[in-house]
Each structure stands twice: as C-alpha cells, then as structure tokens.
Write a protein that binds this DNA or RNA. Structure first.
Lengths: 357, 357
DNA sequence: GAACGTGATGTGACCGTTCACAAAGCGTGG
DNA sequence: CCACGCTTTGTGAACGGTCACATCACGTTC
C-alpha cells in the first residue's frame, strides 16, 4: 500500500518534469489526490480539514503530512458552492481614501479575520443609483454572508432599502432607516465642539460643513445648529464644503474678507487645516484672532499650526463592534447592540477665548 | 407554454408566502430555474450570460427578462469552480492606512473593475514569516489569478520568492528580485529633494528616514546619500523613524538641541510636519532658520505651515499600470513594461537658501 | 431529393468540496 | 457466540455553473 502510494507520487513528479513539454495547466492537487496518497477516502480528508472529532489521531496526522508535502490548498470556490457559505463579509464603501473609513476597514478586517471571515471590498466611485446597485449586486453574487456599508451618502441607503438585502447588514453611519447601525454619534460630537467654543465665550461661530448629501456632514451640521440655538446665538448658514484642505483654504480666504465671526467649527480636520492656512495668509493669528475646531482627530492634527482642537472618533472601535454585531446575527442571536459610541473632544491650542475689543 | 411558465412563478411566490412557516432557507434561483421559466435549456441561459454570439435575439431577450424578473444572480463560486478562473486579483498589503497605498489601491480597484476583475485584499499586520505566509496562502486559496504586492517590507519578498507563486504578480515596490515591479523611482525622488536643498546652498543636511526594513525608506535614504556624496558634503547618519508625525516631532526636539544643520529632508510628509512643529516650538522659523523637504505630497502638504516642499508620487498611475501589466500577462503577452515612474519635486515655501551668518 | 453546411439549441460529464447516510471494525455484555 | 453500540471510515449525491459534443431545423447546392 505504501509502495503504491509512493509510486503515485513519483509518477506525478515525473510527469511535471518530463521532457514532452505539454503546455497543459498543472492541475492543483485536490482532496482526492490527498486521499489517494494518504491511503484514505476523500471524505476522511474532508473531515481532517474540518476538524471533525471522530478521526483517529494517526490517520489525521498521515493526512496532514500529505497535505503539507504536496502543498494542498482547499479550493474555496468548491467549498462555497456546496455550503453556500463563503466566509466572506462584503464591504460597500465609498471614498476609501479618507482617514476614517480606512481606519475602520483595517479594524474590520482584523476582527473579521479573527473570526475566520474575509472581506470583499467594493468601492463605489459615484453615488448614483446604477453605481450603487451594481456594487451591491456584485457583492451579493460573491455570496457574501453579511454586509458592512460605509458609503456615507444618504442615497446609498435608499437604494439598499429598495433592493431587498437578504443578508444581515450593518452601516457605520447613523441612519433612521431601522437598519442596524454602529456609529460614532456625530451630532453629539458636533455639539461638543460647538459647546466648547460657546463656553469659551464665542458668540459668532461659523460652520464649514461637508457635502450636503453626506450623512456625517448633515449630522454634524445638525449638532452645530442645535447647540447654537440652545445658546440663543445668531444662526449662520453653514458653508458646504467637500472635505478637502483646499476647500477649507479657499473658503477661508472668502470668509475672512468680512470677518464677522470669531470662531470656526470645521466638519473635518482637513478643512480646518486649510482654513488655518487662509488665516495665516491674511495675517490673522490662531487662536488669538480666530478659534478653530476640527473633527476626526487625524494623527496629524496634533502637529498642525497650531495643534488643532478637534473631536476624536474611535474608528477602529466602530469597525470591531460592527463585525461583532454581524457575527452575532450570523450565529442566530438577536443582536441587542445598536450602539453609538460617544466621541471625545480633544482640546489643543487652536481654540481660546475671543479677544474682547 | 407561457401559461406553464407563469404557473411556476406563482407557485414559487406562493410557497415563500405560505402559512406553514418552514424555516428552510429560500434557495436562490439558479440557472435551471431561469431556463425552466424561459422555456429553454440551461445551456442556453449560460450562453446568454456569457454573451455567446450564436443565440437568437428573441430567445436572448426572453431569458434576460426572466433573469430580471426573478432577480437571478450567477453564482461566482460555481463559475470559479468549473472554470478555475476567479476573475479576482489578490492584493497583499501592509499598512493600508497610509495615504500612498490607499490611493494606489483605489486606482487598482478602478482599473481592475474596468477589466472585469475584482480585488481580494489581505492586509498583513506584522511582517513576520507566518503572517506573510498565511496571507499569501489565503489569497492563493481564493484561486486568485494575479497578485499585487504592496507590502513594503523587504522580508515579504524573501517569503514570496520562497513560496513558489504560480500566478503572475507585480509589486509596487522597487526590488532587485527579478520580479515584475511597477513603482515610482524612490531613489530619484530622494535625489531630487536632496539636490534641491544642495542647490539652495545647504551643506549640512539631515535626513529623517523611515523604518529600516521598508524598501521605500531604504531607497530614499540611498538617494539622499548618493546626492550628498556627489556634492562632496559631510555624510550624516540618517535618523530612522516610523513615518509618523509624532516621530518627526520628537526627533525634531532632539535634533534641534544641537542644531548643527540647516536643512532636513524627511522621508515622508508626516514626519516633515512633525519636525516643523518641533521647530516652531523651539522658536525656529521655516525656511528662515531651517529648510524642510518632505516626500509623497499628500493633499494636506500644500496647507502645512509653511506649505511643504515635497516630492510628488503619482500613486494612482502606479496602480493603473500595475494592473495593465498583470492583465497583459494574463492574456499571455510578455509584458515589456517593467517601468518606473519618475517623481516630481513640488517646491513650496518650506525651503529656501540658508541664512549666511 | 439527397447531401451538406450552418445557426440555434439541448445533453451528459465534470470542477472540488460537503452532506446524509451506510458500513465496517471492534470491544462488551448477556 | 451473537446482538449491540460506539468509533472510525467509506459511498453516492448534491451544489451551480461551463465545456465538449450531439442534435435539430432549415436553407442551399448539385
């Protein structure tokens, strides 16, 4: 028997190294190859792979040896086909180039990997219907078992609720669509930032917001407006930006022509950075002339000039919690968590009391 | 026939909405369901899906109608199993949270999608052998057709050349391992930056490098040293950093205690930012007292204080070219491109001639 | 009108794995 | 000594597609 096994091995080696250079693809070893070489049935090999309890240690070891020797790798496609479980979690994302999403995705990947899942990430470039639909279609055709949505535009959720998604899904945004969401409370964060400026004594506060169709931008604006109203201050129309430092800069140049405010709450750190650049350019000092508060606390924010007061979001934590929520649902538990994480105000040197003139 | 078709449809709907609440999974429609409803054979449906030319328009339309109606989605796993083509390109990456990799990956995804491929991204957290090996194993078990490696540590390539990779692969780093690489010429970029400082008249230039085992860091350091040697200047031992703004800051505080240099070339923009922060803190002005040059040209660099002179890398272009190289190889063409892209020096306000004392 | 080519469609086998079930081996108690 | 249960292993049939080949209808040519 053993001799026979070895014969087979030799035969295979011979063929691949033979002189008749056939261009035929060398078929990757499969479960039956392993079985033959180990002198067991393919089912036994399958059991070893799936760590079935009822398998004799000696047999198991023999199979594992063969697997290592010939470099056998189970074919995921075949596995997915028969179990209709892909061990894959889909991620529908937009603008992965931003700090927040990227950080969350990294954490999601980590958490998923620990649970034996992999990620299938699809990045939708535009927010229009067909792009979103094809993104979701795409992920679903991968037979993903769960879905994480990081696409921060409102429209995405309209599409999602329209297409009937059969897999458990969670979004990292705060929505009122009744779906599971796991997010940092953006409104609370914005209120923290605004409150901070008000507490310092500012009464004329400008808000540079993100794009109008971004959920985060909307929520932060909401928090800003609420807090301003609560303090009975004049409500000013926020500026709608595009998250970029460039926008912050040009908006700043424009705004500073009038300079009828003493503080700015920018909806992210990049725009805050651009705005501060504009301030320097027109000769205003921060926080002497104008206070600035950002949002996100990107790692660079502590080294801006001046170091930026901002709202810290725990992106990795959100990612981890999102996965644990999905995993719970996949196990059939009814997830209770539907949580929001509270952000934290990081006070640095870009904010101070206004100068009394 | 048509009546029969409709009967079937109604039957399916009935069952799912029936009162005998069976918990059985509603099986997703398959190619045979479509065939039955359209009154054709499953092979005909397959032909429609694969856009086979020899199919009557009327039949094709009928099949497509059914597909849309019942929301049929081809099962990728089954397809991958039989064709042993997954239409997937694997990405082995490390530290996806950085600006460069992220930007490249986005471009890669875009280019891959256009060619009908998807991405399977695996992020290895540490650079040790088993982590790398399991990452590659993982991707290969997905039967990826090609591999893009963005993991910038030298060791990754040792592992890669050890495991015999059978699929075409390309790395976004510059290596001498004889594998295909597609990268921005880091050394040239570093020489550009250094040359710029030398041309301004600086003779004592400090280099803050990245971690020693990063290929980019090594190449940039190399470029720096070459140019310094070429100009016959004193060679100083570079500081080995970790890419972070924090490091740049603390390294700066330390370096500035002696202040025996007039210019700094930092291996990325973040460390440059941190260094400039340190300069401000000890009361030095940039570029008055010290010139600073960074590397990467992240979008924020133009709004640092002062706006940072840096080396721009075209990350998206690299990603696109990497994919086109792989696609060519998959088509069986021998790719000629093995290219390096030249980076570009962006001169802003953080560099100037040294003050003659 | 038989032979033939061609466009359109159908049939059986197979890809590599898991599942349900069957069966073999083996000690044990009545 | 045989029925019994337990552990360990083996067998056929899926899963949902594609591929190679067979078949069919239909006009064209000689």
């Amino acid at each position: 028997m053993v001799i026979d096994v070895w014969n087979v091995t030799v035969h295979i080696a011979d063929e691949s190294g033979s002189t008749r250079m056939e261009p035929e693809r060398v078929r990757a070893p499969n479960i039956r190859d392993v079985a033959r070489l180990a002198g067991v049935s393919y089912q036994t090999v399958s059991r070893v792979l799936n760590e079935s309890p009822s398998i004799k240690d000696s047999t198991k070891q023999r199979v594992l040896d063969v697997i290592n020797e010939i470099g056998y790798r189970p074919n995921q496609a075949a596995r997915a086909l028969v179990t209709s479980k892909s061990r894959t979690i889909g991620v529908l994302s937009q603008q992965t180039a931003f700090y927040g999403p990227t950080t969350s995705i990294t954490a999601i990947e980590q958490a998923a990997k620990e649970a034996g899942y992999r990620l299938s990430i699809t990045n939708i470039s535009s927010g229009d219907y067909s792009a979103i639909k094809s993104g979701v279609d795409y992920l679903l055709s991968q037979s993903i078992e769960a879905l994480v949505v990081i696409a921060p535009q409102v429209r995405v959720f309209e599409v999602l609720s329209e297409l009937s998604i059969t897999v458990p899904f969670v979004t990292l945004q705060t929505t009122d669509l009744g779906v599971h969401s796991m997010s940092v409370d953006q409104t609370a964060g914005a209120r923290l930032a605004t409150r901070h400026l008000i507490d310092l004594g500012h009464t004329e506060i400008m808000h540079i917001s993100g794009p109008q169709d971004w959920i985060e931008a909307e929520a932060r604006m909401q928090g800003f407006l609420e807090e301003v109203a609560l303090a009975d201050l004049r409500t000013r129309a926020p500026i709608l930006g595009d998250w970029s430092a460039h926008f912050g800069y040009y908006a700043g140049l424009e705004l500073l022509r009038y300079r009828d405010f003493t503080a700015v709450f920018a909806s992210n750190d990049q725009m805050a950075l651009g705005f501060m650049h504009a301030c320097r350019e027109v000769g205003l000092s921060i926080p002497g002339d104008i206070s600035v508060v950002g949002f996100d606390d990107i790692p660079e924010a502590a080294h801006f000039f001046p170091p930026l007061t901002t709202v810290r979001q725990n992106f990795p934590e959100i990612g981890r919690r999102a996965i644990s929520l999905l995993l719970a649902e996949l196990r059939g538990e009814t997830p209770v968590e539907h949580g929001q994480i509270l952000p934290e105000l990081i006070i640095r040197e870009s904010s101070a009391a206004p100068v009394t003139r």
